[in-house]
Design a protein around this nucleic acid. Sequence first.
RNA 1: GCGCCCGUAGCUCAGCCGGAUAGAGCGUUCGCCUCCGGAGCGAAAGGUCACAGGUUCGAAUCCUGUCGGGCGCACCA
Length: 612
Amino acid sequence: MEDVKPQLERALAEAIAILGVSDPEISIQEVPEDKPGDYGTPVAFTLARSLRRNPATIAQEITSRIELPPGIARVETSGPYINFVVDVASFVASVVESALEPSPHDKKVVIEHTSVNPNKEAHVGHLRNIVLGDACGRILQADGFEVEVQNYIDDTGRQAAESFFAVRYFGKDFDGAEKYDHWLGRLYVELQSAKESDAETIEQGVREVMHQLERGELREEVERVVHSQLQTSYQLGVEYDLLVWESDVVHSGFLKRGLEVLEQSPYVSHPQDGKYAGAMVMDVAEFIPGLEESTVVLVRSDGNAMYVAKDIGYQFWKAGIFEGLLYQPFDSQPSGKTLYTSSPRGETHPSGRTFAHGEEIVNVIDVRQSHPQTIVRTALALSGTEEGTKAYQSSQHLAYEVVTLEGRPMSGRKGITLSIDEVIEEAARRARAVVEEKNPGLSNIDRVAHQVGVGALRFGMLKSEARRIIDFRWEQALSLQGDSAPYVQYAHARACSILRAAQAQGLSADDPDWSQLGPLEVRLAQVITRLPGVVRTAAQELAPHIVAQYCLDLATAWNAYYNHKDAEGRYDTQVLKSQSGLREARLALVEKVKTTLATALSLLGIESPEEM
RNA sequence: GCGCCCGUAGCUCAGCCGGAUAGAGCGUUCGCCUCCGGAGCGAAAGGUCACAGGUUCGAAUCCUGUCGGGCGCACCA
């Protein structure tokens, strides 16, 4: 049996057609707790206008004419609302037997996230980026897209140069006492204060290092930081398909070719005199109205390209308009999946793989970069070329708000940060303390503590909308109860526990008698069956928080079911104590709850331990 | 100044392509383990959905304006 909602829509549409209205907008919603029925619609309201009749009468009429689809027991009106009552047995059975099958789009999405400057350890601001990007990738995949995750390495930037210069300046050698990225980050911060007394020497030195970086001479050092930073991602359960190095992007000629495309645009020019003499500029006034200064510099008068210009080349490549990068394996990730990297010494199709060529492009970048992001996209559009239009249409910026620390903005420069590594460690430590208390005998306690701690962290970053500022506070971020991952994980573990007990007693979900189920099971099944719609919406809107909220809904519904009592105050949903037939049906439902919780959590990159 | 985002319970947030008495968590108060996991459940208290207009049978949701708050407006990224 297919989903009830589309079936109800169709049946309603047919009944409404008899009344002389074609193609009405019909919304089917779950009926509130204390109202009759399971699914309902306010469609009679909408019809009242065009039919110029009382909505309640219309509802009556539709109700009397409608042909009920299979699985619907009856229909009734509640004033102007039309409510349907599902047939308990067939409804729950169909929900239990349904599978979350993505409708394949046959479409590739290239999603870029993480992109931490390779000069320091990642902090909790980056945590949001990493987790958000990772969750979007998982959700898009679940919705049927082919997903390629890219991590951009800005190896020619000033920040990297400063860190590597700091090593020389202070005459340090890495002794392995701490993580390499942390060590480098500390020197970076120290260099900032050293600038106060020795600005000129430092500036000159940093420039030298920048040139070295551009020539690719410090590749090994940069790779060392990247490897170090990747350990953090792996701890979070995050992996990538490809690292793209800025130096490779430049050396592959993408910058030059991007500029060539833009040259064709009437909005791009080379002023001979005035403020922008000698530069290559673009006028975006027509596309971004209201700007005080609508001239954007693409190439400086000294001949150096702006970031915007480089990014344009990069975006073209992502869309598959340019080719020319070479690739090679970079790391074997925890799952066993090979991580590739762009490289001057690679091949075009390592192991037969093709990178980029995204039909959709998602850039996970914080909201403060919205303006430059808009300019990049606008440039693509006003190039007036087919390629530019394609790249413009296929790319979108997932702008998320920043993470503050106890109400204050983070600053890498000033060293006001909190590293992800530190937070993960503390999260696991706290989780471990609780597990030890609640479940002393647990064998793989460290692993479970990590799953719970990291789960709590990730969930905290994902449960509210991306455009919301998150103020990081330990108590909230690592909360193990309430609106949290551990709450959901606990609900999952509880279901597992029942299934384990059933197995120990030699019980299985075979031969269920669905007809013995009642409204309590229907309510739970209704929540279970929402998942496919949740995934679709979350994918369309790039909004993992929708999935997070769903996890909470399902865990809450399951916990409420589990704890339900009858009028005399006795538990009336105990699976294993139910009579035969009912017991098997409930076992099957619990099994479905378990897998649905685990699936939903996995879309957020959160693991579901069987015991905790 | 211009642009974008936000304003829902004491605090942190869902709900926002219009629909049934506005929902959670934290905190406060009261109940629930002779019962498959109490990291749980039930209940109470707590709301001019910033404000003012408008559209509509119906507005937290859409439109306009106002007031608060955040961010952005470089030959940086």
